[in-house]
């Protein structure tokens, strides 16, 4: 099957809608992050809340990647999601866009490494891996992870990888399995 890489109005709207839907669903669990952080802070593990939920925030990228199966989908899905979050009243304001770009590039890279040929388990897992590594490197600078002692650093990385794999990997795959059964996507994204 020959795939087109061009973005048309309908695809752009669909992608934005999916990103917004994800944003709204995540917005519902916003309090969860604060509760987790408060609970973990007294033992000095507050940042772990960030890693536990990272998969949920970075899900739109891999999901958009395997739904649209074309260049730029993962980046746009993740980035548009962050823009939506920014205007929904996310507390970070314009800084959200930086995270959006970092996460978007990170999840896109996974598909790039497969040469945009594999949009199945391999591509998805690559995307999960690149997202984990790059967002973690970013947090090492931005949130000062680089100064933690080594054991904690490894633990946080593993937590983030598992979270990414459950949401970006397993859940995205489960969603597309359901979608494949409807045969709606083949008709839509030619």
């Amino acid at each position: 099957m020959k795939r087109s890489n061009a973005w048309h109005l309908r695809d752009i709207i669909l992608l934005a809608l999916i990103a917004i839907f994800c944003g709204v669903i995540f917005w519902v669990i916003g309090p969860l992050y604060n509760i987790l952080t408060v609970a973990l802070t007294p033992v000095g593990l507050g940042p772990a809340a960030n890693d536990i939920l990272m998969g949920v925030w970075c899900m739109a990228g891999p999901l958009a990647g395997i739904i649209f199966k074309r260049v730029g989908a993962a980046f746009l899905g993740e980035f548009l999601g962050s823009v939506v979050e920014m205007f929904l009243g996310g507390q970070w304001g314009a800084s959200t866009m930086i995270s959006g770009v970092v996460q978007g590039v990170a999840s896109e890279l996974g598909f790039t490494f497969t040469g945009y040929k594999n949009f199945n388990w391999l591509g998805l897992n690559m995307s999960v891996l690149t997202t984990t590594i790059i967002t973690f490197a970013w947090d090492m600078a931005r949130n000062g992870y680089a100064s933690y002692h080594f054991g904690l650093l490894i633990a946080l990385f593993i937590i983030r990888l598992i979270s990414m794999w459950i949401f970006g990997g397993l859940l995205s795959k489960a969603i597309t399995n359901l979608l494949d059964r409807t045969h709606l996507l083949q008709a839509q994204t030619r």
Binding site: T37, V38, L40, T41, P42, V43, G44, L45, G46, P47, A49, N143, G144, S147, Y148, H149, L152
Partner: peptide, 9 residues
């Protein structure tokens, strides 16, 4: 959370 984690870890 970040500040406390830095002080402790």
């Amino acid at each position: 959370a970040l500040a406390v984690a830095m002080l402790m870890q």
